[in-house]
Amino acid sequence: MSADESPIKDKHLLIAVDESDSSRRAVLYVADFLGGFPGFTVTLLRIVPAPEKDFFDNAAEQDAWVEEKLTAANKMLENYRQVLLQSGFPEDKVRYRACIEQSRSFSDAILETRCDLTCCTIVVGRHHKSRTEEFLFGSTSSKLIHEAKNCAVWVVE
């Protein structure tokens, strides 16, 4: 059996990112840590939190907002993909997806994607939120640590 026909499945990592520096650190960490090693697949995920429709005057304004955000998200994801490729990940082992999320929380959306893709590890950057901010609006990394099942969660400082 050749190496290409190895029965060992790739370890699939899901890196959930946004425009923050902490997300950039998470991507760079994975690039440094795993770049060049065989047996890893990475999916970069950007969940764009859409404001509820109350924040828009009409559907056209909302659609324009969504399109603009998705374009920006795909551009960012392509940049991060290039970072991973340059670190040694093969072309076919790095994918990305961007989606708009309105009703679910970030963590729920990330966990559901992890489940769909059967990823073994979730990687996120840690946002340094104040206690007030975490109290009022929650923390995705904390929620992931508490809620994730059947996977590892890497929270990158």
Partner: peptide, 15 residues
């Protein structure tokens, strides 16, 4: 009123 929530949708209401 409505507010832009983050991870926790109802945190501000609970506050």
């Amino acid at each position: 009123f409505n507010y832009r929530h983050g991870e926790s949708r109802f945190g501000f209401d609970l506050f």
